[in-house]
């Protein structure tokens, strides 16, 4: 503690007296863990501290929880899990606020900037999960209106989806504002009589979908796979014009479905260089959608992420042991 105190004071001095200018990469505390919960930094650990950003959906949290659990208990690292939205998390690579993004959905523009141009981040391989975003309706609707799953017929059913929020058009329920989204462009370019209504969170989407299926209410909503919800509630995807290579190049002119993405891991350059075993673990980490859904469902059912991760780790020793660097 004293050392950190001293470091703080010193940094104040250095910061003021420094010459040659301060770079973005400079951080106020030279000692580990300048911020974040101190419970993590209270007990110094063998391997140092790793910061895995938490993006706001439960599947992501499941992956992060398992990796964090292994880092802590198998490798002796301290792990911080700051809650940061997707695009902001990339900014954190530059100044050491973020070491790992454990599940990245595309973001080619960010890759270009932070990996190619700025050189502050590097790719760390696939998570093994295939991710795809799409528009969904509850199963009962697909049963009742079989042709609804074709986007061309959406306008026909727009009235069904009207709510007090959608201003006379059909409502398309969206999640967290930070999610990857082509919705506005799709509606415009496909000339759909719909309006994006924002639920604000993954939880709003889940709740909406569950209610829609249980109470037989119409709902068209933005969702993604992998997600544990598919094993609990039957959902049917609406087919937008098929994805072709490059059809989503210009975000304003998108008129096609989302591409199936190979979800991958991104780490900061610094972590790749000095992360040691923790970095190797991140690089090796790879599991199936089913694995993730299992952990995510446990979290959703009320377990803490750590408990859920523990449960999975105890039941799947062979899987994770392959990830642990020798």
């Amino acid at each position: 503690m004293k050392i950190r105190l001293l470091a703080g004071v010193l940094m104040l001095g250095v910061a003021l007296a420094g010459c040659g200018g301060a770079k973005v990469e400079d951080t106020p505390s030279a000692a580990p863990a300048p911020s974040g919960s101190a419970s993590a930094s209270a007990q110094p650990s063998a391997g140092g501290t790793v910061k895995i950003a938490i993006n706001p959906w439960v599947g992501y949290e499941a992956s992060a929880a398992v990796v964090a659990y292994l880092m802590k208990n198998e490798l002796g690292y301290t792990v911080e899990l700051p809650e940061i939205k997707e695009q902001l998390a990339w900014e954190g690579f530059a100044n050491g606020q973020v070491d790992v993004i454990i599940e990245n959905w595309g973001h080619d523009d960010l890759k270009k900037k932070y990996i190619e141009t700025d050189g502050v981040a590097v790719e760390a391989g696939s998570t093994g999960n295939k991710g795809v975003i799409g528009w969904y309706v509850p199963k009962w609707m697909a049963d009742k209106y079989p042709d609804i799953t074709d986007w061309k017929n959406l306008n026909k059913y727009a009235d069904l989806f009207k709510t007090s929020e959608s201003g006379g058009k059909g409502a398309l329920l969206f999640g967290d504002p930070s999610y990857v989204s082509n919705e506005e462009a799709l509606i415009k370019n496909l000339k759909l009589n719909f309006k994006v209504v924002t639920g604000g969170s993954e939880a709003a989407l889940i709740k909406g979908a569950q209610q829609a299926q249980e109470q037989q209410k119409p709902l068209l909503f933005y969702f993604w796979d992998p997600h544990w919800l598919f094993s609990k509630t039957e959902l049917v995807r609406v087919n937008l014009p098929a994805y072709t290579e490059g059809c989503d190049a210009d975000p304003k002119k998108v008129a096609c479905d989302y591409a199936e993405l190979d979800l991958d891991k991104i780490v900061s350059k610094k972590f790749a260089d000095t992360g040691g075993k923790a970095y190797d673990l991140v690089k090796n980490f790879s599991w199936t959608n089913a694995d993730q859904n299992q952990v995510a469902m446990d979290i959703n059912d009320g377990m803490t992420p750590e408990e859920a991760a523990k449960k999975w780790v105890e039941a799947n020793a062979t899987k994770w042991q392959a990830w642990i660097p020798k």
């Binding site: 703080g8 400079d26 505390s29 300048p34």
Partner: peptide, 13 residues
Amino acid sequence: NYVRLFIGGLFAL
């Protein structure tokens, strides 16, 4: 950046 370092240092302290 110095302002940031100063504020960060104060906070860390």
